[in-house]
Design a protein around this nucleic acid. Sequence first.
RNA 1: GGCAUCGUGGCCGAGUGGCUAGGCACAGCUCUGCAAAAGCUUGUACAGCGGUUCGAAUCCGCUCGAUGCCUCCA
Length: 493
Amino acid sequence: MQLYEQHPLKIHNSLGGKKENFKPLKEGYVGMYVCGPTVYSNVHLGNCRTFMSFDMMFRYFRHLGYKVRYVRNITDVGHLENDSDDGEDKIAKKAKLEQIEPMEVVQRYTVDFHNIIKQFNLLPPSIEPTATGHIVEQIEIIKEIIENGYAYVVNGSVYFDVVTFNEKFDYGKLSGRKLEDMMANTRQLTAQSEKRNPQDFALWKKAEEQHIMRWPSPWGDGFPGWHIECTVMSTKYLGRTFDIHGGGMDLKFPHHECEIAQAEASYGKAPVNYWIHTNMLTLNGKKMSKSIGNNVFPHEIFSGDTELLSKAYAPAVVRFFMMQAHYSSILDLSDDALQASEKGYHRLMDAISILEKLETGSKSDFDVQTWRQKCYDAMSDDFNTPILIAHLFDAVKHINQIKEGNEMITEVDLNLLSDTIKAFVYDVLGIAPASEAQGDSNNLDGVLNLLIDLRNEARANKDFQTSDKIRDELVSLGIQLKDGKDGTTFSLN
RNA sequence: GGCAUCGUGGCCGAGUGGCUAGGCACAGCUCUGCAAAAGCUUGUACAGCGGUUCGAAUCCGCUCGAUGCCUCCA
């Protein structure tokens, strides 16, 4: 029996706005697509939060025993700079600015993205397709949409006909908008626009002479519109209808709305059963955004090299900080909040590290079975990581009590406790084990144990000057000694 | 202007029609040579105004405020 049978999962579906019981199309398998980064600049921390949230979901699905195909794309072409007719591709624009090949820009920032994501301990997706690798498929689906009567060609460009589409399908069902309202709220089209209606969006854009990223198509040389790549790459690898589609809240409209429209206009059916949208990470109460410059880069956090922070924070601490908030809530980044998380993180990790040293007894004062169930209940209730973490701290309390000799635990329970807490912290939350995060080494252990011995000798001789010197010097090196009942231990910061 | 989300104790952040999340900070105590760590104890918050209810912070309405989307953005 798989874990997913014992712990049924509920997911908040953005389409409809309700929590629903999760039922995959094929039992035991999950298909999940997440809109990945546009690689024309470094990822900022806000981007990372989204990918981290979906990484956590990916991990929990796997933990539950599902076989998951997780597709996260790389957008390396296609974002129109603006809606005007000379709209050019963001990546191409950046390339011209820096006098290099567009694919060089793509390469540089893709490498940066992978590097950062790895430090945050994200698992690689099953497939990471690129938009430029699927031009042929994009052209094919555009042809289909034209044949079905939901798109029109103007002067080498192809536009999706929202009004015609809306007659048969419902444009706006994901974002809760009505086409009439949208049209009423839009200014009149300028005379020179090619579009029949301001709400129409580009499926294919004609490339002007100076446009360097271009591909031949039945409508002339050009490049694909922003929304079509996701429709193509998701359905190609997951099927025309698949389980989960995720992305940041800011993509709900128009991007995801358009994806639904494109899929329905071509294949005639809804592409996705469960839409999941993660909320924004804010900085000073405002959304992080590349375009307005309100952002923090991960390397600035890791190095502490920013005016926003008083010190550097390890990737695992940042990850723990993010997991303390629900994925669907706005999270505001601040130095105070990170500091609080860092302390909590160390408390949790210290408890895990003393698990092996605990002595077992004849009975348990801690109901591990019930606690374990609560952990699953939290995660299975729309991936409620903050509640899970609250339960983990409940266990921390008991672990410390057992260490102090105030409580007892049986060997069986201790093993279950140990396995469960490690599974949730390491495997599900994706928080790196202490040894990895702290750069463990046996040499260091040996040296520290020697220093601890020397200090304890000094203390025994009441030579507190020496003992305090050892302790204080170590603290300034980031090593904290902890005197307990059963001797002295240390932890690294 | 339209649509959406949200407003919780010093800070961060869950949750919910009645039975006190959690973390951090603060205070007292225990332990300690002194600290740190750990443990124990204390904090009764839910924007405002109405309404529904035996009972609402939780449901409904209004007001105020914040944020997001409506043009590229996770």
